[in-house]
Nucleic acid binder design. Structure first.
Length: 434
RNA sequence: GUGGUUGUAGUUCAAUGGUAGAGCACUGGAUUGUGGUUCCAGGCGUUGUGGGUUCGAGUCCCAUCAGCCACCCCA
């Protein structure tokens, strides 16, 4: 049947059959980030649009054509956030989070919005997780942020990915490099694609990233950033690498990494899913040492990364990873007859208040249907109550794995909590062995 | 935003322009209160939507919407 309403293009519903994976991934990320001493920050999903125009850069594709912009009733221009860093930095500046702290370490996760043609692994509303460390230019912080990103993927059980790092230079040496690039590419101007010709003077580093064959070939012999870094940037980069080595994080230096957003300076890195040809960036990040100023605050160095949940799930599926997350019922309740049904609500609430996960379908009546449903639910055991049991003032508890069954006094069942429930299950398992 | 491709039952897919089907899933049953196997039974779905051609359209044409692929970009 054709539904009357459908999700908007490029969006999707996270349905119950996968939502447990989301809960798991979110929790894993939060737990790991907390252990690295990052605290959660939650910002609105929309901001003044010029926040992004100024920070992300008005020549970037994100701002040029992918922003969801709208006017509110008073004519102010807002945009659904296309990325997470600018809002976090805005909040850092606005709330003076830096006062009394040399580094402020923040994590976030939530929906981002970009108007782009949808594709697998690319959506108009997508979900990112990320961290930002603001206030320190110490290369150790760079390494720590990168290690956090790396550890997250590793801890999930992923391995088919590569960490690539680069240093795109500070505003000073980056300019020298840009000059060299323009000089170099200028020789081949006629052979470059129109986009590259246009970008050459605005953002020459982007030419290195072009996928057009001839541009690629020309770019292969272009000057390399590493040769243009000034002493400060070079030692910074070296130290980041030293720290990463110390922390056992494998990486490759890739001088061609150019991040797409304008605010990046110095350290830049990406983690690439090797199993994919396109949409293969699992996560990316880097330094943004002049972003606080652009947003109207005092100069403060910062670094962070962001990754996409959708691409994470693709990678997990590819690797055939079973997430250890399980949320199966402890007990499935079966009632037979009206008397039994009448005593269910109280008993079930009792068990739930004691912390047990209880499943029950009041509309199913036959024993068979209820047993089938219990089986399908994956519940550890069923509790059966019928006229016989009521007469004995007891219930039948059946362990679904061992198929062993035992009568338990009603009073004892009411008292069941996670601990005594586990004991009861073990007892039933023992019965099977005899 | 550009080019290509696809759109049939909950799902995966069939159906030389002539009555729309199958596997899986789902529901019920195989003697009275015990699941995962097996067997039997159960589907009239505006064939994505709207037009057009035709005696007749799931099938051909146009438009539109959506997915996928490549480009672009990135998460």
């Amino acid at each position: 049947m054709a539904a009357k309403y459908k999700v908007p293009r490029g969006t999707y519903d996270i349905l119950p059959d996968v939502s447990d994976k989301w809960i798991y991934l979110e929790n894993m990320f939060k737990k790991l980030a907390l252990s690295f001493d990052y605290k959660l920050i939650v910002t609105p999903i929309f901001e003044k649009s010029d926040l992004f125009e100024r920070s992300v850069g008005d020549t970037s594709d994100i701002v040029e054509k992918e922003m969801y912009k709208f006017q509110d009733k008073k004519g102010r221009m807002f945009a659904l956030r296309p990325e997470g860093t600018a809002p976090v930095v805005r909040s850092y500046v606005e709330n003076n989070l830096g006062i009394g702290n040399s580094v402020v370490k923040l994590m976030y996760h939530g929906p981002m919005f970009r108007y782009d043609r949808p594709q697998k692994g690319r959506y108009r509303q997508f979900y990112q997780y990320g961290v930002e460390a603001i206030g320190s230019n110490n290369p150790y912080i760079d390494a720590e942020v990168i290690t956090l990103a790396y550890s997250f993927l590793k801890n999930l059980g992923l391995s088919n990915f590569n960490l690539e790092i680069n240093n795109i230079g500070c505003p000073v040496c980056s300019k020298d490099y840009d000059k060299a690039l323009v000089e170099y590419f200028e020789q081949y101007r006629e052979q470059l694609c129109p986009d590259c010709q246009k970008r050459m003077h605005k953002n020459p580093k982007r030419l290195l990233d072009c996928k057009v064959k001839t541009c690629k070939e020309i770019g292969a012999d272009a000057p390399v950033i590493t040769d243009y870094l000034d002493d400060e940037c070079r030692t910074h980069f070296e130290q980041v690498q030293n720290y990463l080595t110390q922390m056992d994080v494998p990486f490759e230096v890739n001088p061609r990494i150019v991040r797409g957003l304008d605010y990046y300076t110095g350290t830049a890195f990406e983690i690439i899913n090797n199993g994919l040809k396109t949409q293969n960036a699992l996560l990316g990040g880097g330094r943004y040492n002049s972003l606080t100023e652009q947003v109207g605050g005092k100069p403060q160095p910062g670094i962070g990364f962001a990754g996409g949940f959708e691409r994470l799930l693709i990678a997990i599926e590819e690797a055939n990873l079973e997430l250890p997350f399980e949320n199966l019922p402890d007990v499935y309740m079966i009632d037979l007859g009206e008397k039994a049904q009448n005593m269910m609500p109280g008993l079930i609430l009792n068990l739930r208040n004691n912390g047990l996960h209880v499943s029950y379908d009041i509309d199913k009546t036959s024993m068979k249907a209820q047993m089938k449903a219990a089986d399908k639910s994956g519940a550890q055991c069923v509790i059966i109550i019928g006229d016989e049991e009521i007469e004995n003032n007891a219930v039948n508890v059946k362990n679904m794995n061992c198929r062993t069954q035992k009568q338990v006094k009603l009073d004892a069942v009411r008292e069941l909590n996670n601990e005594s429930f586990a004991e009861l299950m073990a007892e039933l398992a023992d019965l099977q062995e005899k």
